[in-house]
């Protein structure tokens, strides 16, 4: 009973944390644009803030720079279970044009990634769609699968 209630609530309300690991701000301001009343991310029960300890989903933007190689794992460890990572933008997927610089792409080399959103930058609708698509899959029957 409580497990069912937990699953129901988890799917409908979760916290999102934005993690910039060396992006050009383009993807970050598109995530910020999701907050706008036009897209209205909060009507789906998604709350965006910057604290990994309270988050359920982390949005990672940018090619992983030298300083972030260790820290990205630390921050991923801080996020409580159940958790999912969404990699946003071409940089997070492949390094894009920064692949030859001081970066270590892709993000999936460092932490497990659930969804990848390509684009430079992707549109807010696509980001919103990715967040909504990951929620039912990751948080469905989490207790029964042996977590939490």
């Amino acid at each position: 009973m409580i497990g069912k209630l937990k699953n129901l609530v988890r799917r409908k309300s979760f916290h999102v944390c934005l993690l910039n690991v060396g992006s050009c701000n383009g993807c970050d301001i598109e995530v910020l644009a999701c907050l706008a009343p036009r897209y209205d991310i909060e009507q789906y029960g998604i709350y965006v803030h910057n604290n990994p300890r309270e988050a359920d989903v982390i949005l990672v933007t940018g090619a992983v720079t030298d300083q972030w190689v260790e820290k990205i794992k630390e921050i991923y460890a801080k996020v409580p279970e159940p958790k999912a990572v969404i990699a946003i933008g071409s940089c997070a997927l492949s390094g894009h044009m920064f692949a030859e610089g001081c970066t270590h792409p892709p993000v999936s080399r460092h932490i497990p990634v659930a969804v990848e959103v390509p684009g430079c930058p992707p549109r807010p609708q696509e980001i919103l769609d990715a967040i909504l698509s990951v929620a039912p899959v990751v948080f469905k029957d989490y207790d029964e699968k042996g977590g939490g």
Binding site: N20, V21, G22, S23, G62, A63, T65, D66, Q67, W68, M97, F98, E100, G101, C102, T103
Partner: peptide
């Protein structure tokens, strides 16, 4: 500083 240094001038 140094968290977003991608080395653009070098590339």
């Amino acid at each position: 500083l140094g968290y977003v240094h991608r080395g653009i001038e070098k590339i």
